[in-house]
Amino acid sequence: MSEIKSPGEPFEPEPTKNETFGSETPVTGQTKMQAAWSSDVENAESTAQVASMPTGQIFQQIYQPWNGTLNPRWMRNWAILRHHVLGIVSKGHRPWNVPTKLFIFFVVIASMTDAAMALLFGMIGDTTLYDIWGVNRDNMYGHVMGFFPRNILWYPIIAALLVGGMISEDRANGTSAMYFSRPINRFDYAAMKFLSVGLILFFVINGTLAVYYFVDILVMGKGWSWIIDTFPMFMATFLCGIILSFTYTSIGLALSSVSRGRFFPAIGLIAILMGTKSMAAIIDGLFDKSVLYVISPYDAVAHVCQALIGTEMTYDHPWVWSLISVVVMNGLALYLLANRVSSLEVTRE
C-alpha cells in the first residue's frame, strides 16, 4: 500500500518502469521512440526500427589456374567405360533410370536359378534332381542360349534397355559435342560405348554362368579330372555368351545411333530379334525348312553355339551358314554404327 503524503510535502515523481532515457541507463541496443509532440501510451511502447539491406554472400571471382598433367588416351577411354558401367550401381555417373537398374538386378538373380537349384539339390543329396539342375552340356547351353525365358524375356530386354539411349541420347542432348570437342576420337567413342553395353551384358550372362559352374564345383567337391573334362565345354559356353552379348550389342547400338530417342532403338531391337524368329518359325512350321532361321540373330547365334558346345542340333541347315549370318549381321550393324557415329556433329546437330 502506498504511503499517503500530507499537503505541503515536496512532490517527488515516481520513476516509471518505461524510463530508459536516463544517463545511467545501460545501452541495450534497443531504443524507445518518443514522439516530439505527443507521448501517448502506444507511442511510448513503440520501438524504432531501421530498414536493413539483406545481407548477401560475398562472391569473388578469381581465375584459378591448373598446372596438372593430362593422362593419355587409355585413361580417357577408361573414363567413358567407367561412366557408363558404374552408372548402374552408383550415383555421379551415367544416370541410368530406375527400371533399368531394377530389371538388371532381377535378371541377375533370376539367371542364377540354376546355380541355386544345383546348390540346393547338391547339398540335400538328391541325385535325381541334381542331375536335372547340375552342370552338364545341355544345362550350360541353356544358361546362355535357352530361349524361354532367358532369350525372350531377359537378355534381349536388358540389351534393349541398355542400348536405348546409349548413343541416341548423346544426339538428342548434344552431349556428343562433349566427347568430340575433347581428344576423343570417334572410334574410341563408339568402342567404349560398345564395350560398356557389352560388359554389362557380359556380367549378367557370363558372370552368372561362371557362378553356376563354380558353385557346382564347390558344392559337389568336383575333382581336377571333372574340371579338366568340363572346362572346354565351359569355355565354349563362355564364348557363346560373348558372341550373344556382342550380337545384341552391335544391333542395338546400330539402332541407337540412327535415333534421337530411347524408345525406337529398344523396341527396334526386340522387334528384330522376335520378328525374325517368329517369321522363321512360321516358315519352318509350314514348309519344314529351317534355313530361314539364318535371318534371326538369336537362332543364328544359337545354331553356332550348338556346334561349339556340342549339344544336339535343332536346325537342319549347316551351322556354317549361321556362322556366316552372324558375321554378316554384326558386320552390317557395326558398319551402320560407324557410319552414324561419324556423322555426329560437334558444332550443330
Binding site: 596438372g68 593430362l70 593422362n71 593419355p72 588416351r73 585413361m75 580417357r76 573414363a79 567413358i80 567407367r82 561412366h83 555417373h93 562433349m178 566427347y179 575433347r182 581428344p183 576423343i184
Partner: peptide, 8 residues
Amino acid sequence: YSGELMGM
C-alpha cells in the same frame, strides 16, 4: 566427367 574426358 568433362574433365575426365580430357584425361584428368
